[in-house]
Simulated scan of single mutants.
Amino acid sequence: MLQSGRVPERLTKRSLVAVSHAIERAALAPAEDGPTVVMALFQRMPYFERESALYQRIAATAAVTVIGMVGPTPPALPQGTYGVLLDEADPLAREWSVLVLTPRFGAALVAHDRMEVEPTAATLEAGRLFDGGWSFRRDDALHEMVRLRGQLADRLPRVALLVLDDVLGRARELPATPGEARGEAAIRLLVRRAEQARVALEATRQADDVSGQSPTLLDDTAMRRWTGLDGTTASGTLPVALVAVRVAEPAGAPERFGRRSAAREAQAVLGALTAPLRSSDRAVRLAEHDYLLVLPSLSEDQAIEVTDRVREGVAGLARSYPFVAFEVHAAVAVTARRPLPVDDVRHALSWAVEQGVPLATVAPESASAPAGVL
Rank of each mutant, 00 (worst) to 15 (best):
E312G: 07
V64S: 03
L190I: 11
V247E: 05
R6T: 11
L162T: 15
V17K: 00
K13I: 01
L217Y: 04
A107C: 08
H289N: 13
G258K: 10
E327K: 13
P254F: 00
A222M: 05
T73M: 09
Q355E: 14
E95K: 00
I23V: 14
A348S: 14
R260N: 12
L273V: 09
L270W: 01
A63C: 04
E173A: 13
L174Y: 06
A371D: 11
R193Q: 15
R147Y: 15
A40K: 07
T36N: 01
L162P: 01
V353L: 05
V362N: 03
T233G: 09
R10Q: 08
E184L: 02
T307Y: 09
L109W: 05
D290Q: 15
R14V: 11
A330V: 12
D131M: 04
T81L: 04
P341H: 07
T274K: 03
E173N: 05
L201D: 15
T102Y: 04
G132C: 03
Q151H: 10
V328P: 06
A27W: 03
V163I: 10
D131P: 02
A197H: 13
V66I: 15
L162Q: 15
A40I: 08
S20V: 01
A234S: 07
T102N: 02
R114G: 04
A121K: 03
R94S: 13
A53V: 15
R346Q: 14
Y82N: 08
L124P: 06
D281C: 08
G372S: 06
V247C: 03
L124M: 12
P119K: 00
R264D: 14
E365M: 11
W134V: 00
R50T: 10
E9T: 07
R319C: 01
G356N: 06
A222W: 11
L152M: 05
V19D: 01
A194L: 10
L162Y: 08
V357T: 10
A194R: 14
V17I: 11
R188L: 02
V19I: 05
L217Q: 07
E88C: 05
F323M: 14
R198W: 14
A253L: 11
G313C: 02
A331Y: 07
V191N: 03
D344A: 15
L229Q: 13
L174P: 13
D33V: 08
V117W: 00
D308A: 10
V357I: 11
T227D: 07
V284A: 10
D281S: 04
L41K: 03
